[in-house]
Nucleic acid binder design. Structure first.
Lengths: 340, 340
DNA sequence: CTGAAAGCGCTTACAG
DNA sequence: CTGAAAGCGCTTACAG
């Protein structure tokens, strides 16, 4: 047998038609059980695999999802938020389980990624995962909607924009802040962008605001300092706060990366965590547990999130009813707030 | 126009044949410049994209690479060594630059991944990236070789086994150990598996041995403690060493994950890093810089490595001459050894 | 339960 | 420089 075997080769060997081979390989109930068995045995012997392109071309579906990861600004060529990376594992596994392949691509938010994958039939649908200015993001989503592209996005609900899967950021932010308050902290800084440009961070900030107000504390603008989600930004933000002479006894960082950078900045200035300043992060990335001190944080369940993203997209592709989903978060107390 | 536009639609609008459209879209020198221009303009207007499956089926190449990531034993469903993840970024970018799509899949080393992607024409070649027992790995590689599958593997040269790209682990291990010796450390523990089951770790160990012997130090078996590449394994290994009463003033950990876990274990026992025990890791994963104290380590250039993996595989696919590549490492001194 | 036939949307010899 | 035609390897009505 030269070259790869085809369904015709199997048909010949099995003494049936190629149509029957095609049906048998997909366990069609139309085919007699013993025919299925014979065909599949021969296929196995020939190490035959259905040609992906031929079957996709004919059936007009590729059994492939595309994952678009983007991050703007990208601090470094290869630095991707570990939070997204940890979702990647869960997404690939969920895809495999559903019988889909996964195409992965990293992009700048600023790139022209909004077409291509579905138009060229490379993928049946797109998973969008990333961090960047929502004001730049929305027009791209709008274009996807207009094109009728099937996609699901990690992030908060966004009115009039397709399907999303996201965490309850507001509740998570409130839990984190209440935790600090319960431990007796009163001057709690929020490190992270708090505007509609970064809706997830903004929701966490809103949770923070709500917790403080409920505890009878006032909201001081001086205690909020912008930072994108990198260690460097966290380091810089805390340094700025300290240079400015702002007084605080706790930090709620909008992400673990920020928190890790923040702890570094505190320790570089000789401040002790948690004795002088307690720190809470958000995400529970793998580093959090091994930071020094181990970081109290708000866990986003990446396993469940990845599975949900894939499931929502696949259901959408199949034409089944779908709706956006919000996943609860969970506070994980560690030593950075003083727990044992 | 209902449904997606095809090359026939463009042909009709441009007043040329479909063959000419196909050529024009790929900038064939056979086609008159103005025809190319007209065809491409119309294609753009229609938001036309070449159907990936049709073109792949006809041309018998998919312009897609498959990345197989595996890790055994997998400690956690979603925990993947950040070192591999950071290569992922570089690999996707290199693929895009070369005009290839990238299919990503996570597998257990124990899974049956050794076929499928190329057989079903999903990918033109495979990039293998992972960590696991080499004794389990080799038979799979052998099978790939026998099938004539085009692949490239991250790791050391392996006689009679296809193409590889890897770091100079022995030299890296030697550099790390010499660094500790130069700082006056004399009782240096090696944490990591040091057998042919884990050739990369073993090469690092050999570098360690060489450095010690060159410095006139003896190799004490009690100073070597097995660990796979997880924080937990590093933590456990150091705990074992301490429980056993082994005396040491430095640790060379076979990976950063091990090193981070090791530092945790030391600090949990009240030992100071670097005062009591200096620590060097391997990889320079993002965490290393933000560990406490920041971790001295041997950097593997993941950007270059990813690019090289893609380039080697693409050249192999194109039938160009290729050979395995070894990339140099670089010592990155940080505070875990006492540097400023 | 099975087969003959059409056709998915391209690329690429072949002919001019 | 361009066109008519074949064919990549499947899936799926259609007919029996």
């Amino acid at each position: 047998m030269k070259g790869k075997a085809t369904s015709f080769d199997i048909a010949h060997l099995a003494g049936v038609s190629q149509s029957t081979v095609s049906r048998a390989l997909r366990n069609s109930p139309l085919v007699k059980a013993e025919t299925i068995e014979k065909v599949q045995r021969i296929a196995r012997e020939l190490n035959y695999k259905v040609d992906k392109h031929a079957s996709s071309l004919r059936s007009q579906q590729s059994a492939t999802l595309a994952l678009l990861l983007f991050e703007d600004p990208t601090t470094d060529d290869s630095l991707i938020n570990p939070f997204f990376l940890s979702m990647l594992g869960s997404i690939t596994r969920a895809c495999a389980r559903q019988g889909f392949d996964l195409l992965v691509s990293f992009q700048q938010l600023s790139d022209d990624w909004h077409a291509d994958y579905e138009d060229s039939h490379k993928a049946d649908g797109i998973i969008l995962l990333g961090y960047g200015d929502d004001v730049d993001y929305q027009p791209k989503l709008k274009q996807l909607d207009q094109q009728g592209t099937r996609y699901v996005r990690w992030g908060p609900l966004s009115e009039g924009r397709g399907l999303s899967v996201g965490c309850d950021n507001r509740q998570g932010g409130q839990d984190a802040s209440q935790h600090l308050i319960a431990l007796g902290r009163r001057r709690i800084a929020f490190i992270g962008n708090a505007s509609h440009h970064y809706p997830e961070f903004f929701a966490r900030y809103q949770g923070y605001v709500r917790a403080l107000l409920e505890a009878g504390l006032s909201i001081e603008p001086a205690l909020q300092q912008d930072a994108i989600t990198t260690e460097q930004a966290g380091f810089d933000a805390v340094t700025t706060l300290l240079d400015r002479g702002t007084d605080f006894d706790a930090i709620f960082a909008a992400s673990d990366l920020i928190a890790v950078g923040a702890m570094q900045a505190l320790q570089a200035r000789g401040l002790r965590v948690p004795d002088d300043v307690a720190v809470v992060g958000f995400d529970d990335i793998p580093v959090a547990r091994f930071a020094s001190p181990p970081l109290t944080t708000v866990r986003q369940d990446t396993k469940r999130a990845g599975e949900q993203l894939v499931e929502s997209l696949v259901r959408q592709i199949r034409g089944e009813p779908v709706r956006s989903v919000t996943i609860p978060t969970q506070l994980v107390p560690r030593k950075s707030c003083g727990e044992a």
